[in-house]
Write a protein that binds this DNA or RNA. Structure first.
Lengths: 216, 216
DNA sequence: GTCTATATAGCGATAGAC
DNA sequence: GTCTATCGCTATATAGAC
């Protein structure tokens, strides 16, 4: 009965400490201490630290991308535009960051950093879990941006993902540089600003065109 | 006479291994081995690993931002537009990534990841070294985007920085997801795509406006 | 300045009692 | 399932010969 409790506590503690100090720097001793569990519990429940890392990411990434695809389906059904497609990608992550009492907020920071995580295991998980989702979003955007060659859509979605990851992971920078003028902690604000910015970027004329300076 | 050679070799090796495995995961043993130096050399030349980390970043960040400000001055003199201001921010980093025979290419990846680096020392250095540069670029952009409140310019510059950092640090993702269609290794291409995308995003109507869908 | 040798501490992992 | 105790290893850091 304590079993799942301990398991969940370990996942929560690991998530929180991975987000704060990085995967490599968070020791099993620190994790088990924060989870009020024994050091050996990690190996009993997961087998190794690498397996724990995998479990921490797997627990969230699947549902996250599932929700994204659900919102994308809804968006296709209601014939939503570029803004709605972007929101379908962004909102689930911000929602996850917003809702849960503890742990999940940390996961948002962790996810924001996961693309550039040096740990190979993490990079592999993220890359493979995201591939089908990204493909579907790029297709949806390409259909709404017929003036762009596919490579251009891919470039621009890449930039959009970067802006999003940075916003989630590095809000402290904006808070500091804006001297309190922007409140990146308010994720609703962040989403509105992001969608406006990214939609305009996506709608820019194609690079190969020689005209410049107006949206679609 | 060997002194500066060893020192430089240590900085190059550290830069390269920090970029590849992260600051925490790169051991002094691996660094000194790659530099063909003795393990104790790090402590003789720098005093500690933390001091080495500081030296690795300091060596590049100052000149990088100096070049950015030089290009921004030039841009002001020639009355350049939003695109030119963005190029003044982006080009120096890509140039650094492009030119030097060894080491500096790694620094670009390291810099791209530095904003979200868990290591506190690194975050502090980056934040303080970048503050004056960012302030000047935000001012320059604000003057060219009079339809935007200052907070909006700050938000959008934040997004732009994220897209740039992601492009530098995570080119492998685009390479993978585009199945070879995009070549993020070509940094000239990356810059052209980035500037077009970001300029359009910056020119988007202000959030508070209720009209939508066209650039400035 | 460079080297060997070593101090000290923390890491992930495991065996085995309960 | 949980605990203690410990193994084997690697980390950073340092002392002292050359």
């Amino acid at each position: 009965m304590e079993a799942t409790d301990t398991r969940e506590a370990l996942l929560d503690a690991a998530e929180s400490l991975f987000a704060e100090h990085g995967v490599q720097a968070a020791s099993l001793r620190a994790i088990t201490q924060q989870a009020q569990a024994n050091l050996a519990a990690v190996h009993y429940h997961f087998g190794s630290k690498e397996a724990l890392v995998r479990a921490v990411f797997s627990r969230r990434v699947g549902p996250l991308n599932q929700e994204r695809l659900r919102q994308l389906d809804e968006c296709e059904r209601t014939d939503g535009g570029v803004e709605e497609v972007l929101s379908a990608f962004i909102e689930p992550l911000l929602r996850v960051a917003r809702q849960t009492p503890e742990g999940t907020r940390h996961f948002a920071r962790l996810m924001g950093r996961s693309f550039s995580e040096p740990n190979e295991e993490v990079r592999t998980i993220v890359m493979e879990e995201f591939a089908p989702t990204i493909r579907r979003f790029v297709e949806a955007l390409a259909r709404r941006l017929p003036h762009l060659p596919e490579s251009e859509v891919l470039w621009r979605f890449h930039f959009a993902a970067g802006a999003m990851a940075h916003t989630i992971a590095c809000g402290h920078l904006l808070e500091r540089y804006s001297e309190g003028l922007c409140r990146p902690g308010s994720l609703e604000d962040a989403q509105d600003h992001l969608v406006t910015f990214l939609a305009a970027g996506l709608r820019a004329p194609a690079l190969s065109n020689h005209d410049r300076g107006e949206g679609a």
